[in-house]
Structure formats: C-alpha cells, structure tokens
C-alpha cells in the first residue's frame, strides 16, 4: 500500500499505483500523481484527464485508449506523446480511476 499526501489529506494507492478510492481525487492530487510519472500537466493533458473522469463517472468503468482518443478528440500519436510509455495505465492513474478493463 502506497500513500500520497495532498495538502492535509493522505490518499491511498494500490500496489500498482492506482487510487483506491476514485472519490479522493482532486486536481492537486492529479498534479502529484503526474509528477510521480514524470509528467508536467498541460491543457492537453487536462483534456484527456477530464474526459477519462467524466467517462468513469458516467459509465462506472475506465475508458480504453481508443475510447479516450475518440471521445476526447486527442489523436493516438498525441496520446502516446502526452503520456509516454504506457498511456493506458498512466491516464487512469493520474485521473484517479481504476485500471482500464477493456482491451482496445
């Protein structure tokens, strides 16, 4: 179990680095989670993160990369450069939602 301190709150991450309780997420938490992945968040990152959170809140499941690319209007190439080396997990980690269960 890993913990992350955001302001006065302590958030719990599972052993793969995903937020245990997606409701604990905040924008400050996203910045810290991104930093731990070596990513400095820009407006384009936020577009992806906000879409992923909304998708999760609406569907109760994390979006796959293809759903993010189509839904957020961010091309595959850009998605892989915004979240290098494994965007599927990185987007979910930073957005504070569970590991995506879909394949494509």
């Amino acid at each position: 179990m890993i913990t992350l301190k955001v302001n006065d709150r302590v958030l719990t991450l599972d052993e793969e680095g995903f937020l245990v309780n997606p409701a604990d997420w905040s924008e400050e938490a996203a910045h810290l989670l991104a930093k731990s992945e070596g990513i400095e968040l820009t407006e384009r990152h936020w577009k992806v993160i906000r879409f992923a959170r909304e998708y999760y809140e609406t569907n109760g499941a994390s979006p796959t990369l293809r759903q993010i690319s189509k839904g957020a209007g961010v091309p595959t190439k850009e998605l892989f450069s915004l979240f290098p080396k494994g965007p599927a997990k990185k987007v979910a980690r930073i957005a504070g939602i569970p590991k995506p269960a879909g394949c494509v």
């Binding site: 990369l65 892989f80 290098p84 080396k85 494994g86 965007p87 599927a88 997990k89 394949c103 494509v104």
Partner: peptide
C-alpha cells in the same frame, strides 16, 4: 493487433 496495442498501452 490487439496484444500489440495492449502492450503499447502498457509501455512495452
């Protein structure tokens, strides 16, 4: 195609 895509998504 599917396994390759999954691998890329996981940083492989």
């Amino acid at each position: 195609l599917i396994m390759g895509w999954a691998a890329l998504g996981n940083g492989v």
